[in-house]
Amino acid sequence: MNFPVERDLVVSLDGFMDKLEAVKPYIIRDDVNDTSGGEFLQSPAELAQYKQYSMCINCMLCYAACPVAGHEDEFLGPAALALGHRYNKDSRDQGQAERLDVMLVGEAIWGCTFVGECTVVCPKHVDPAGAIQQAKAVGAQEFFKRFVAPKGAGV
């Protein structure tokens, strides 16, 4: 369900790929190419914060199970949002603000009504529904922070 059909059992993945790219699913930091300091170390506890959300295999079952993904084009969908959250929770990453610029627009994340079926069908136990609610909480905090100190205020 939810994916436009090209022919027979072939569905169009263009929209899904665009949404996956939109959340910038890679480590963002100024010194990402600077190897002089050695590896970017991470403790097991820091790894545990995002490991579950990094297990996605892009099977897209969550999109097929999500009633919002079928109704709302602006909604980025479970896998893409969980992946964005996975990088936001990565202690080596500094790109949360950039990702939130994409995730907090319109229905991109707020379209989610926590039906929870994405988590039920996920074969890798990623729990996209949980990741999205956590990302919403971060987004709500960010909204008030930006309200108090808008971008460019030097805070």
Binding site: F3, P4, E6, D14, G15, H71, V120
Partner: peptide
Amino acid sequence: MSGRYHRPHGWAWFLERPGY
């Protein structure tokens, strides 16, 4: 999303799965 055929969603979409 692009593509040729969008499967329609009826008003009774919430009866499709027990989770809904």
